[in-house]
Design a protein around this nucleic acid. Structure first.
Length: 890
RNA sequence: GGGCGAUUAGCUCAGCUGGGAGAGCGCCGCCUCGACAAGGCGGAGGUCACUGGUUCGAGCCCAGUAUCGCCCACCA
């Protein structure tokens, strides 16, 4: 209380850590599992990488999820925000590899077992810092029940799913064309490939002599080095230029292999020469063509990205780039180059390592997706899973309808090792596995009995295990009480970048294994760009660290102007992010954070005002268990009515995922209606000469309104509201564990709202008039109010606009001001400059005449009167009448 | 190459099923009025990207153009 007196500003840096400690101590973030998922509320957090540090996307998403969780918790639902981290195979493995490098050792030097141990150690030490960061934002995840995608229980779920899908024939091993990431030395999935546009390469035209000795066929390629793996030449079946050559052979330059000329309608007649070299081993299209025609598959580029032994002695061991240069030289010597030109095209790069993807044939594990996709499409089509905004469901459905097999094996050590064992003369992972007859394969969640088995060295794609997140975190495949209580979850909130990687796969797996949709609603939030519209990224120097906003600190390199960020506090950041959020991408706007900061400060000072001025009086009269407002005046009824509206609106907007509108609505209510108008109107009633009874009644109303306002705002700005809750007389316990007050229809008061709306407008008009005629700010202007609808508000209007309406007849009228419902006649007094008043009046008359002319014109338009809806025409007529009356009065 | 979205005040964005454009910040002017100067009050500022169409009436609906962004895609 002493603090309230002294501090005129809300200090988040002092308050927030203290509040956070209280929250974490009381354990309300952890619900005991009970009841059914239908009555409970749950959200599964998109598990951040253990290596992760909080970025703007996390901050926005965790704020959204926290608003949902807090709102539902305060509605009395048992609410669980499922928390955990993802082992993030590639990212984590690389992190530790870098560490080893700095120690002068390496993964291969340590060996698999020791390496994996080192990763676990690393995770113990550094992993999960992001969870501490969530706490600082006020996120009420269930910190007492944290999961990890490599937990033993979770791993059991992963293995079971693999084994089941294998037994059902959806998971299989095959030699197939994959996206090979030479940097990672692992296969990656289609979704991890990024097509980079505008890459400039040279397109070479190379002559392949016909085996008959007569003539040649010229082909075009940007990758001459792959010619070493050519096994055919293809032309379009309808291409007359080559019709007689189909079936003949050419001799592959440098190699000497004979290649058959085949016909395939994949070939575009109008591109280049219309003849295409076919390299089934290193080009996805050629691979398909090769399989169609039963062509030989030759690989000349190894998994290390270097030319392999099959490329021939001359090229083996060279990098792809060097090999290309050498081959061009060699072809020039043969005089086989027929042309070269600059060629701009798109090239696949690995999102993981940034290296150019090398398509090659490799023995990998794949998962057939078509069978799983059907139900996942239906779930969205039939609205069992609703995606917001709606436009995202089209993307979702389109992707699922064109889904292809998923390469799920990764040549890494950190992750879920594939539960498959081999025995026999074939060593695991060797490419010739299909060729040998004496090998055995065992697939199971536990190792096979007997000697000589060796486990497949590969691990599963991280997204394979993430796909099980909503149910594997709750103990599946056991029928646990957690699963009973919290699956399916209610909402999944995420950025659109992982709609396919993660969301779609969760729906497929949820339906297949947990027999139900994993969540009822998917909210796809906006991506927050840097203030200049670029991507927020560390390497560009455009990334803004949310915690720096919370606690203050240097701006990112790209935005150093303006000095350091002040410590805005978590509430301000939460408010700002929600205010920015939208259904589309938005630029980061520091102003919105400042707006949140201003709101927290405003709320603090409003509470300060109430507590210091009426707190003691009112607390005595307020029963904490049944705090009830005691409306005495029209403004009391008005603010109570508005309070019901904001409670209803905020709830609806949160439920509809319209967070920007929800928080800006709260801002308008608190800043505008509550502070700018209600508290200002009520001030005279707090004067010492007001009766004690009147003061107590007002105090009760003020406290009631403030209490409920704090509760409504709490899910958005939890820290400041919790702190003020503590300082407000008549409150019990913590707001975070309290109840969200429901709108009370009995307190809705349209009459009071109409009266106050009119009064507020009149005050605005009168203030504007004062300003325009240069009245001294403190002067009270004598006047007569000749207008309808001010029976109960006239003295309020007078007080706020500094007019005195009780001097009728005492002096001459010198001016009139139009207010809603009539006119204010200003009486002669020393404070009004008559000339200015007259000029102002003339201006107003002019504006009215203009508007009347417009309305007139519209109503004399026959088309309008004849075709517009009658209600619109009537409204226009009423408006014209009103304007004429107003002009008359002036 | 296809698809989606955006274009509204100086900046960041709202604008519901078509009926005389709004907010926050910034800017200008005035206020040391006992909650708050991170404040109060007032004000200026917009051919709603462009062109055409539908309509009595278009920021909103339709077609096209331009610019920007995103997603998908196997033309060497």
């Amino acid at each position: 209380m002493g603090d309230l007196q002294e501090r005129t500003r809300f200090e988040p840096a002092e308050v927030e850590p203290r509040i956070l400690e209280r929250w974490l101590e009381c354990g309300f973030v952890h619900p005991e599992p009970a009841g059914s998922a239908e009555e409970n509320f749950s959200i599964a957090i998109p598990p951040p990488n253990v290596t992760g540090a909080l970025h703007m996307g996390h901050a926005l998403n965790s704020t959204i999820q926290d608003v949902l969780t807090r709102t539902n918790r305060m509605r009395g639902r048992r609410s669980k925000w499922i928390l955990g981290t993802d082992h993030a195979g590639i990212a984590t493995q690389r992190q530790v590899e870098k560490l080893l490098e700095s120690e002068g050792t390496s993964r291969t030097e340590l060996g698999r077992e020791e390496f994996v141990e080192r990763v676990w150690e690393w995770r113990e030490k550094y992993g999960g810092q992001i969870i501490e960061q969530f706490k600082r934002l006020g996120a009420t995840c269930d910190y007492e029940d944290e999961r990890f995608t490599l937990d033993p229980q979770y791993a059991q779920a992963v293995l079971k799913v693999f084994v089941d899908l294998y037994e059902q024939g959806l998971i299989y091993r095959d030699n197939y064309m994959v996206n090979w990431d030479p940097g990672l030395r692992s296969a990656i999935s289609d979704l991890e490939v990024e097509e980079r546009e505008g890459v400039v390469d040279t397109l070479y035209s190379i002559a392949y002599p016909l085996a008959s000795g007569e003539g040649e066929v010229v082909v075009a390629t940007v990758r001459p080095e792959t010619m070493l793996a050519d096994t055919a030449l293809a032309v379009h079946p309808d291409d007359e230029r080559y019709a007689q050559l189909v079936g003949q052979e050419v001799v592959l330059p440098l190699v000497g292999r004979r290649l058959q000329i085949i016909a395939d309608d994949y070939v575009k007649m109008d591109f280049g020469t219309g003849a295409l070299k076919i390299t089934p081993g290193h080009d996805p299209n050629d691979f398909e063509i090769g399989r169609r025609h039963g062509l030989e598959e030759v690989g000349v580029i190894g998994e290390d990205g270097l030319m392999s032994a099959d490329a021939g002695e001359r090229y083996a061991g060279l990098t792809v780039v060097d090999a290309r240069a050498q081959i061009i030289i060699d072809l020039e010597q043969l005089d086989a180059i027929r042309g070269r030109e600059e060629f701009v095209h798109t090239v696949p790069y690995s999102q993981r390592s940034g290296e150019r993807v090398e398509p090659l044939i490799s023995l990998q594990w794949f998962m057939r997706m078509d069978e799983l996709a059907g139900p996942a499409i239906e779930a969205v089509r039939f609205g069992h899973v609703k995606i917001h905004p709606e436009s995202q469901s089209r993307r979702y459905v389109d992707w699922l309808e064109n889904i292809r097999p998923w390469c799920i094996s990764r040549q890494l050590w950190w992750g879920h090792q594939i539960p498959v064992w081999y025995r026999g003369d074939t060593r695991p992972g060797e490419k010739s596995a299909t060729g040998s007859g004496t090998s055995e394969t065992y697939v199971g969640a536990t190792p096979p009995a007997g000697e000589g088995w060796e486990q497949d060295p590969d691990v599963l794609d991280t997204w394979f295990s993430s796909a099980l997140w909503p149910f594997a975190t709750l103990g599946w495949p056991e029928r646990t009480t957690e699963l009973e209580a919290f699956y399916p979850t209610d909402v999944l909130s995420t950025g659109r970048d992982i709609l396919f990687l993660w969301v779609a796969r969760m729906v497929m797996m949820g339906l297949r294994f947990a027999d139900e949709i994993p969540f009822a609603d998917v909210y796809v939030h906006s991506i927050i760009q840097a203030p200049d519209g670029r991507r927020m990224s560390k390497s560009l120097g455009t990334g803004i660290d949310p915690l720096t906003l919370v606690e203050g600190g240097p701006r990112p390199p790209a935005f150093t102007q303006g000095g350091d960020f002040p410590a805005y506090g978590a509430d301000a950041v939460r408010f700002g992010l929600l205010a920015m959020s939208s259904t589309q991408d938005v630029r980061f706007s520091e102003e919105k954070v400042q707006q949140g900061q201003a709101l927290a400060n405003k709320l603090y000072n409003a509470t300060r005002f109430v507590v210091l001025r009426v707190g003691e009086d009112a607390a005595a009269d307020t029963d904490p268990a049944h705090p009830a407002p005691q409306p005495r005046a029209v403004e009391d009824r008005w603010i109570l009515s508005r309070l019901q509206a904001i409670k209803a609106d905020t709830g609806e907007r949160v439920d509809g995922f319209d967070f920007a509108k929800a928080v800006l609505g709260l801002y308008d209510f608190i800043y505008g209606e509550l502070c700018d108008w209600y508290l200002e109107i009520v001030k005279p009633r707090l004067a010492d000469d007001a009766g004690p009874d009147e003061r107590a009644a007002l105090g009760a109303t003020l406290l009631h309104v403030l209490r409920e306002t704090l509760a409504v705002a709490h899910p958005v700005i939890p820290f400041v509201t919790e702190e003020l809750w503590r300082l407000l007389p008549g409150t019990v316990g913590m707001l975070a564990t309290g109840t969200l007050p429901a709108p009370d229809p009995a307190l809705a008061d349209p009459e009071a709202e109409a009266a106050m709306e009119r009064a507020i407008e009149a005050v605005r008009v009168l203030r504007g008039w004062r300003d325009s005629v240069g009245v001294r700010p403190g002067a009270v202007i004598p006047a007569v109010l000749t207008a309808e609808g001010y029976d109960v508000t006239a003295d309020r209007v007078g007080a706020l606009a500094r007019f005195s309406f009780d001097g009728a007849g005492a002096a001459a009228e010198i001016a009139s001001v139009a207010v809603p419902g009539g006119t204010v006649l200003v009486l002669e007094c020393g404070d009004v400059d008559l000339g200015a008043a007259e000029r102002r009046l003339e201006e107003q008359r002019g504006m009215l005449r203009q508007e009347i002319a417009r309305a007139d014109k519209k109503l004399s338009n026959e088309g309008f009167v004849a075709k517009a809806p009658p209600a619109v025409v009537d409204a226009e007529r009423a408006k014209l009448d009103r304007l004429r009356a107003e002009l008359e009065a002036l």
